[in-house]
Design a protein around this nucleic acid. Sequence first.
DNA 1: ACACTGCCCTGCGAGC
DNA 2: TGCTCGCAGGGCAGTG
Length: 280
Amino acid sequence: MPELPEVETVCRALAPFVTDQTFAAARVHWARTVEPHDPAGFVATIPGKRVLSVSRRAKLIVFELSDDLVLTTHLRMTGNLRFIGVDSEPEIAPQQHLRLEFDFESGDALHFYDARKFGRVRLYSSAEWAGYQSTAFGPEPLDPALDGRTFAAMLQSRKRQVKPLLLDQTFIAGIGNIYADESLFKARIHPLQPASTISTRKARELHQAIVETLEAAIANHGTTLRNYRSALGEAGENQRELLVYGAAKDAPCPRCGTKLRKIVVGQRGTTFCPRCQPMR
DNA sequence: ACACTGCCCTGCGAGC
DNA sequence: TGCTCGCAGGGCAGTG
């Protein structure tokens, strides 16, 4: 599923193609994709709006539009935002699950596909967006301002189990199930370890693991396990780097050979090594 | 502040 | 081969 590296990859692919383009029309094929907007109102707002920039915040793709508007896309589990050039071959577009489409005045198009219909596309005023994003999301893990010392202090001030905390977007933005498991494994921290009991040294190791894991995944254009594709339809390559996430049942730890354990944490499948990641 | 449940959804793989 | 069924899970609302 798309997490920070996948969303970043989509943004980077999309930006050169859609920046400075002006929307001509939008069509909604699944009303809940634009929830809580009324589809007719959403569609009526789009024509004439120009894309000023494309960026990422947490797991959201953020289109800054003219007239002080912001359009955001959350891919959730199976969303796929696809750029369809006016000259591209028809088969570049997936044949199924088209939920929302935008036309540009140039004849290019932007399609939103989503098999499971969890993805959401929303409009905000610039002011609304600024307020929302500052309360809904914690710091960006790759922001240089978030150093190891700051991260350690953040962790140690919370009593929750560390994995649910990493998945909490108000605590830190953009980490999902894959990169949480990978980072905890690299830092050798048990997913259920109460955050406040993690030493400063271990917290710094976790910060380092998160940064390295996310940066490597971005360099590999994201992890494609099943559905994820970039805005140009390309699969990522980071799946071959995964150490524990999605490991087969009874698979050995890649570090020590102990049988990996699979538990459920906060409704999510969690794979870890009981020997490398002991509860302290 | 935190834990827990249920909901939204459909494709896929396991099991029979 | 063809069927049923359980699982995958990010975010959110609701409850305790």
